[in-house]
């Protein structure tokens, strides 16, 4: 992979008898939005902490922006931004003071600080409320301010740990869109952890799936979808029977077929179409009302991977 900004080799972290991260090896290319997916407690936050040099790995190695995360973490923190598990906003200060503080921390000159703070607060629709004490704000607004703070010093890499967790769907969607607009405008690499698979599907060009600290899969979302199965077709209608399902299962273009809630669910082999099946169904006396085609979602991918893991 060209121009890798994050590389881990067998990165492992134990907490007493619990292995939080287990021999994790991943690579993140520059300029991509990398999704690090997994359920709660799967080791995502611990991984970010190790990548930022906030936690020592038990074994293995992590290299971020060319710096060793164990011995040169100052270099990583200097060039990256992080929105961690909590927004980390000073609630007794105003929005402008929060950004002023981090502008000073990153030693932005006063004139640049003023311009940048205005630009970011305007991007997130917070400029008119910049003098308000942040403690009175909604969670969504605080989260937007935290993202603005993360991008204030124009980092080349940002870590976002569950940025939309706890937000209502509208606030989450707003934040996602504003975040992506900014990310594309500023060309940063994003290391995004989430357990929201729909979010990952919308934002990420590459994903890694982690469970109980172990990497289950790593690649482009389409590659992972292919692993979870082919194209899915849902047929709504009347007259489905076990005999029809058995007939369909014998056809070469069909990977699986089942009746669920009076619907016929079919999974096609790669590159197969649904049209040859229509005459077969009509011939068997099925009344078709609607046909829906869909691809495997990352949720399907995740469930498949978990099943595979459990079986092995």
């Amino acid at each position: 992979m060209k121009d890798v900004v994050v590389r881990t080799e067998a990165l492992t972290r134990d907490f007493q008898k619990t292995r939080a991260v287990d021999a994790l090896s991943i690579e993140v290319a520059r300029g991509t939005v990398f999704g690090f997916l997994g359920p709660n407690g799967s080791g995502k936050t611990t991984t970010i902490r190790m990548l930022l040099g906030l936690l020592e790995p038990t074994s293995g190695k992590a290299e971020v922006l060319g710096f060793d995360a164990s011995t040169e973490s100052e270099g990583i923190r200097l060039r990256s931004g992080a929105l961690l598990e909590h927004p980390g906003i000073y609630e007794r200060l105003s929005a402008a003071d929060n950004l002023e503080l981090y502008g000073r921390i990153w030693q932005l000159p006063a004139s640049e600080r003023r311009v940048r703070i205005k630009q970011l607060l305007e991007s997130f629709g917070l400029w008119d409320r910049r003098k308000e004490i942040v403690g009175t704000w909604s969670r969504g607004m605080k989260q937007k301010l935290a993202v603005a703070r993360t991008m204030l010093h124009r980092p080349v890499l940002i870590f976002l740990d569950e940025p939309t967790a706890g937000l209502d769907p509208i606030a989450a969607n707003d934040l996602r869109e504003e975040l992506m607009t900014l990310v594309h405008r500023e060309g940063v690499t994003v290391f995004l952890t989430t357990h929201n698979l729909t979010e990952a599907e919308r934002l990420c060009s590459r994903v890694a799936v982690i469970r109980q600290g172990r990497l289950l899969a790593h690649g482009h979302p389409d590659e992972l979808r292919a692993r979870a199965g082919g194209q899915k077709v849902e047929i709504v209608g009347r007259g489905f029977s076990d005999q029809i399902v058995a007939t369909l299962r014998n056809r070469p273009e069909i990977r699986s077929a089942a009746i669920q809630n009076s619907r016929l669910l079919i999974e096609l082999q790669d590159h197969s179409g649904v049209s040859p099946l229509i005459p077969v169904l009509l011939g068997a006396g099925v009344e078709i009302e609607e046909i829906r085609k869909g691809r495997a979602t990352l949720e399907d991918v995740f469930l498949t991977l978990v099943e595979e893991e459990d079986r092995s």
Binding site: L54, L83, H86, G88, I89, I105, A146
Partner: peptide, 10 residues
């Protein structure tokens, strides 16, 4: 919950 963000700074 502001400490970790401060520690993650430069």
């Amino acid at each position: 919950h502001t400490l970790e963000t401060l520690l993650a700074s430069r």
